[in-house]
């Protein structure tokens, strides 16, 4: 069984935010206008977080890091959910079951990466924007928490396709929308248990690190720092 993971190469990343919009379109994220946006209620499952490393000397002290759900091996969010609306699956994807979620937001507080978003109101699509909605992803009601699913619906489609072809699912069968769109080709996705996969090789490289590793959450989103790496991909 695959253990899905993502690698983000911060040396290739240009902070263009294509991943943010690719995800919003793919996952039927509602339109947030200015007033929602000003109150921090706009939803995005992946965002560019600024890390200001003090004053800007000759070395630019601004780092912009794309942050999706880390799909932790030991997710703090699932432990606090009182209704088991969120859980980690066999393939390592941390899922959110909207129908069970009671909107208590313990999980949004527990998540050290702050990637969980709460639906403060009914989603809106001024006519005819709703026509662009994807049939693959459910629309969330008011009062539930949502987050990056590693484009789980794409996994389902890939699994169906593999089943039709009579074979097991394998590395490379699917990738999330953000990875597919990344203009700088800075994002990689695959099976971290497959020793031949690109993500496994990158994970073992000298530039690999995880966010807030010291918390012991064991994220399955791995970053590659800037700098020389030698043979890589």
């Amino acid at each position: 069984m695959a253990r899905w993971g993502m690698v983000i190469d911060l040396d290739r990343c240009t902070a263009c935010q294509a991943c943010v919009v690719a995800c919003q379109v793919e996952n039927n994220i509602p339109v947030a206008g200015q007033s929602d946006s000003d109150r921090g209620r706009g939803i995005s499952w992946i965002r560019l977080a600024p890390f200001n490393e003090g004053e800007h000397g000759t070395r630019p002290g601004l780092r912009l890091v794309p942050i999706p759900c880390m799909h932790c091996e030991k997710p703090p969010c699932t432990k606090v959910c009182p209704v088991k609306a969120t859980s980690i699956g066999k393939e390592g994807i941390v899922a959110q079951v909207y129908a069970r979620c009671i909107g208590c937001r313990y999980c949004t507080t527990a998540c050290p990466y702050t990637v969980r978003r709460f639906n403060w109101k009914l989603p809106e699509w001024p006519d005819p924007m709703g026509e662009g909605l994807s049939p693959d992803v459910s629309v969330r009601p008011r009062g539930v928490v949502e987050k990056c699913s590693f484009c789980h619906h794409r996994l389902q489609n890939a699994r169906d396709k593999a089943a039709i072809e009579g074979r097991a699912l394998r590395d490379g069968d699917y990738m999330p929308a953000c990875v597919e769109s990344c203009p700088a080709e800075a994002m990689f996705f695959g099976d971290l248990d497959d020793p031949r996969s690109v993500v496994t090789r990158l994970e073992a490289g000298p530039r690999a690190f995880r966010l807030l590793e010291e918390l012991g959450t064991k994220p399955k989103v791995i970053y590659l720092s800037k700098g020389e790496s030698g043979a890589d991909v």
Partner: peptide, 14 residues
């Protein structure tokens, strides 16, 4: 439930 809420929730709109 995971199936319903995730991908196969295409049924939600489907």
């Amino acid at each position: 439930i995971g199936l319903v809420a995730g991908a196969a929730a295409g049924a939600a709109l489907g």
